[in-house]
Amino acid sequence: MRFKIIFLILIFLIPGTHVLCSEVDTILSDVEKNMGNVHSIQGMFVQKKQMAMFDTPITILGKLYIENPDKFAWMVTDPIEYSLIISKNTVTKWDKSNGATSLSLKENPMFKEMVEQITFWFSGNYAGCKNDYDINLIKTEPIILEFVPKDHNPASKMLAKITLVFQEDKKYLSKIILLEKNEDITELVFNDVKINSDIAASVWETK
């Protein structure tokens, strides 16, 4: 009798696990498909950081512009004004006191990796990272996915997990939360997001 119960539990568990796996896959596929249709994004953001190196949490406000496949602008308006524009293999930094400076990503591996981190989470191509992250579905309405770096992934040395919260229509992200190994937390919330509307050319030109 006991054997039969275990057997039945196993019978029920197998499809259950299968359903869970395929649900994550389906959602990843939906997200990838939806975000694949996104050519441009512009919106406001609020970034809150709780970092061990700071006495108090840091909040910054700004605007974000993304034009696929290779343009990204991060413009901070408060508490200090600066911008970071990535275009193909070049990163241009601008701030009031220094003006604009450009860097080649090919010659700056540190910056290159940083840019790859930025662009990856905004890309929507998450299915390809299943080898490097355990992906968990936390909630379906709205979709919340949690990415835990696997041990072999160098990111696992710093990051504990990354949580992505999607908009109701699954078209884009509404929030990114990064939890680091040292318990630093970065929360990035997007507001007034406009998808596939034209981005002024002046955005990509440094001030």
Binding site: Q47, K49, M51, M53, I58, I60, W74, V76, I80, Y82, L84, K93, D95, M110, E113, M114, V115, E116, Q117, I118, W121, M158, L159, L178, E180, D184, T186, L188
Partner: peptide, 12 residues
């Protein structure tokens, strides 16, 4: 500036 830029974790 660097620390408030996304992806800056690896610089910390």
């Amino acid at each position: 500036v660097m620390l408030t830029t996304p992806g800056s974790s690896l610089m910390q």
